[in-house]
């Protein structure tokens, strides 16, 4: 199964969840997603998702300069982002429960 297609549907929720746990910059979020098991997540996909969530008002952002190199752009969650994440959680639970039930029985049509 092509997990990248599955990932697309839940990337918003996954990124929000990671940022909710702790503020993070682009690659930091990528690393935490991979550490959580989403090995196939693409760097640019995560960065784009962060930008889109920020543009939609779900995230805040601030820049932290670095002595060693280029600055880092951190993202944090805000109230709207938490509300969005809650919604994602509920939808995911329902959806996953349904699909799990389907796959467990193996009887798509009775």
């Amino acid at each position: 199964m092509d997990t990248t297609q599955l990932l697309k549907g839940v990337l918003d929720a996954a990124v929000l969840a990671v940022v909710e746990a702790e503020d993070g910059y682009g690659y930091d979020v990528v690393r935490r997603l991979r550490a959580a098991g989403l090995d196939d997540v693409g760097d640019a996909s995560v960065y784009g998702t962060l930008r889109r969530l920020y543009a939609n008002g779900a995230l805040t952002t601030y820049v932290v300069p670095s002595d060693a190199g280029p600055h880092r752009k951190y993202y944090g969650i805000n109230a709207q982002g938490r509300a969005m994440l809650d919604l994602h959680r509920k939808e995911w639970q329902t959806f996953a429960g349904t699909v799990s039930a389907l796959l467990r029985t193996g009887e798509v049509a009775a």
Partner: peptide
């Protein structure tokens, strides 16, 4: 700018 701000840091760290 919005899309690529901080990209260097992310690339470098990756």
């Amino acid at each position: 700018e919005e899309l690529t701000d901080g990209l260097e840091a992310d690339l470098a760290e990756a």
